[in-house]
Structures are given as structure tokens and as C-alpha cells.
């Protein structure tokens, strides 16, 4: 392992276009929709207590075989042809866990019972928040990172999640935990690999 780190960020601007996309109404100009979105954003501001935190480590790529999909990253060995393709030509990889905290989960739960439209928008806002956080984090590296690759994409199984949380120290630093199906709580959390090109 090359090193480990932890970072907190200030709240990024809301990207409303993305929220609408996640809420399954991309590009809508329907006033009712837009007004609900604004109400939800407003409530998130008061009640979601978002925190924008990332815990990460930088690993050397010590072995990579695209045809078999075997990837050695110093401390771990993974098997995924798709990730191997994504990391081809990289000397190092940033492995990170990011979360905006569990407050939004409570709002989603609240509206799941009471107002399905708001539940949908709360989901969408949470998704937009954590993706914006990932973008901010990846932008802090001086090198340009490869597009992030997360467990669940392609043939990269969710079963690597425990390993990722352990390597990034995410359970201690960010309180991200896994359920039996390897899904994360808080639900608006992301783990991902982002390759750094060889110089």
C-alpha cells in the first residue's frame, strides 16, 4: 500500500439536471416536478445533515492480466476482466469509499411511507450528492484519473466490498457498513477504483 488518507469536503452545488435524471424525469420542465424537487432540496438542507467524506488508499498495480482478469494491487488480488480493462496501463490505483451520511436514508424512509414522489426525489438527491462528492474527490488528484469503476459494474462482484472497506478503513473512518448482500449503509455511499496512468 502506498498510503491512506481521509478527506472532508464542503457541500458541492446541487446539479439539478442530474437530480431530475435520477428521479426518472430527465430534462422535464413540468412546474409541479420542479417545485417538488426544490421542496425536497430545501428539506434536505434542514434535515439530511449531509457530510461529504471520503476515505481512500493508493495501491500500486503489481500485476494485471486483461485476458484472465486477474489484478494484483499489492495487498489484494481481484478477478474482473472489465476492471482489468479499465485499469490497463495504470501504475497505481486510487481505491476509495465515499459517503454523504445516513440522514438522507431517514428522509427516504419517511417519504417511502408518506409520499412516494418525494421518496423518489430524495433518492435522486442522495444519488446526485454522492456522485458529486466522488467527482470532487477525484478532482483533487493532480493526475487525471481514469473513470471510476465500482463493484456491481460489469463482472466486478459486490463480494469485494468487505475487502474494499477494510483497505480504505471506511468502516472506522466513515461508518460504512455492509449487510448480508454486501450493500452499503448509509445507502448513499460509493466505493470505486480509479486508475492513475503510468507516467
Amino acid at each position: 500500500m502506498i498510503g491512506r488518507g481521509q478527506q472532508s469536503f464542503d457541500a458541492p452545488e446541487y446539479v439539478r439536471r442530474e437530480i431530475l435524471r435520477y428521479a426518472l424525469c430527465p430534462g422535464t420542465d413540468d412546474e409541479a416536478m420542479l417545485s417538488i424537487m426544490e421542496k425536497c432540496i430545501d428539506e434536505c438542507g434542514k434535515k439530511a445533515s449531509f457530510s461529504y467524506r471520503v476515505s481512500y488508499c493508493v495501491l500500486p498495480v503489481t500485476g494485471l492480466d486483461v485476458s484472465s482478469g486477474v489484478i494484483d494491487l499489492d495487498d489484494i488480488t481481484l478477478s474482473s476482466r472489465d476492471l482489468a480493462g479499465n485499469l490497463k496501463g495504470c501504475s497505481e490505483v486510487v481505491l476509495f469509499a465515499a459517503t454523504v451520511g445516513p440522514g438522507i436514508d431517514r428522509l427516504i424512509k419517511k417519504y417511502t411511507k408518506l409520499d412516494p414522489v418525494k421518496a423518489l426525489f430524495m433518492q435522486a438527491i442522495g444519488a446526485e450528492r454522492v456522485e458529486s462528492l466522488c467527482n470532487m474527490f477525484c478532482d483533487t488528484f493532480p493526475q487525471k484519473l481514469r473513470p471510476r469503476y465500482s463493484p456491481g459494474f460489469g463482472d466486478l462482484s459486490l463480494s469485494v466490498q468487505p475487502k474494499i472497506l477494510s483497505l480504505t478503513n471506511a468502516t472506522k473512518n466513515l461508518s460504512i457498513t455492509l449487510d448480508e448482500g454486501c450493500l452499503m449503509s448509509p445507502s448513499k455511499s460509493v466505493t470505486a477504483f480509479a486508475g492513475i496512468d503510468s507516467i
Binding site: A23, L24, C25, T28, D30, A32, M33, I36, D115, P116, V117, L120, F121
Partner: peptide, 11 residues
């Protein structure tokens, strides 16, 4: 129409 609109009508 989008899903949220369908839901709003249902509500």
C-alpha cells in the same frame, strides 16, 4: 409522462 407524474396523479 414521467414516473413522478404518474405517482403524483396516483396520490
Amino acid at each position: 409522462m414521467y414516473l413522478p407524474q404518474l405517482l403524483m396523479s396516483a396520490e
